[in-house]
Design a protein around this nucleic acid. Sequence first.
DNA 1: ATCTCTGCAAACATTTTGCATCATC
DNA 2: GATGATGCAAAATGTTTGCAGAGAT
Lengths: 162, 162
Amino acid sequence: MTAWKLGKGVLWMGNKNEFTEQLKQRGYKLTKQRQAILDVFMEMERPLATAQHIFEKVMEINPGINFSTVYRNLDMLVQEGIVRKITFDQGAAYYELMGGKHHHHLICKGCGKIQCVDYCPLRDMPIKEGFVPTDHSFEIFGFCKECMQTKLLEDERRRERE
Amino acid sequence: MTAWKLGKGVLWMGNKNEFTEQLKQRGYKLTKQRQAILDVFMEMERPLATAQHIFEKVMEINPGINFSTVYRNLDMLVQEGIVRKITFDQGAAYYELMGGKHHHHLICKGCGKIQCVDYCPLRDMPIKEGFVPTDHSFEIFGFCKECMQTKLLEDERRRERE
DNA sequence: ATCTCTGCAAACATTTTGCATCATC
DNA sequence: GATGATGCAAAATGTTTGCAGAGAT
């Protein structure tokens, strides 16, 4: 059982059985590969992970698993609404457990740290007549407190040198 | 000279000379390839285009141009703040002229039509203490008025059949 | 026993790179 | 003429696919 904190509340909470039951009921077989992938999601230290990262972690639990199996299962989990897929740079896609509260991310360009934010822009956006939104992306890039301080110091030093 | 409309205002307006002057001043050479790429951006019928799409259009003006030249120049234009790069699906990245007003997009999953929206979530989002935002993505997917009607009709028909 | 899932290898799509040549300034 | 840009070909990256055999129900 894992829980990520968001401000004063809890961002999500879930246990593996919940998901495995869901999958079984929908006619999916419970292979050790799938269990290992779910295990990795349950024990993730960051909210977002790439397929590569998930693959590496799964290898620790189930060595010999193939990359395509990871991809196929990630697709399946997205399809079943258990996992969300996010792409913000043109590189690899990121995956995260959907469970719990809808949220977005602050991504630090300095250290790569990812924080979750409760705020969702869709509730404040004026409705465009006739358009019915189904999904949306909202990711904020910038510098966290620590990296901003580092950056300001660097900028200052550079200015002194010139 | 091109202008895209946004509600009652104009989304952006620009002319090629403006950009070519900018590039010249920053020490870039004005090759025919670069001019062709800018021409394509000026005459784009949609706000967003993939590198592939831009390449095809540039080929009409300057046949023989190479794909890497297009990529290198798109990178350069992004670097120089003339073009914005957007990625929302894990496929190809999209590019658009930055000129004018900051905006986001409504993307129809039915017909692929892209509308621009004035609203920016960053102005309503509660500030996370210490985090300094520099960039952000905000793209809304859904169905435009026409596609939603089509979809509703299809859903109804399906329900009747069952 | 059935039918899905997996591993493997190969294909695919998009983007990046090194290097010799070419064009702009 | 110097410097930076281009074309070409090849590689790198991330993801998808077909198929034969293995494994879950």
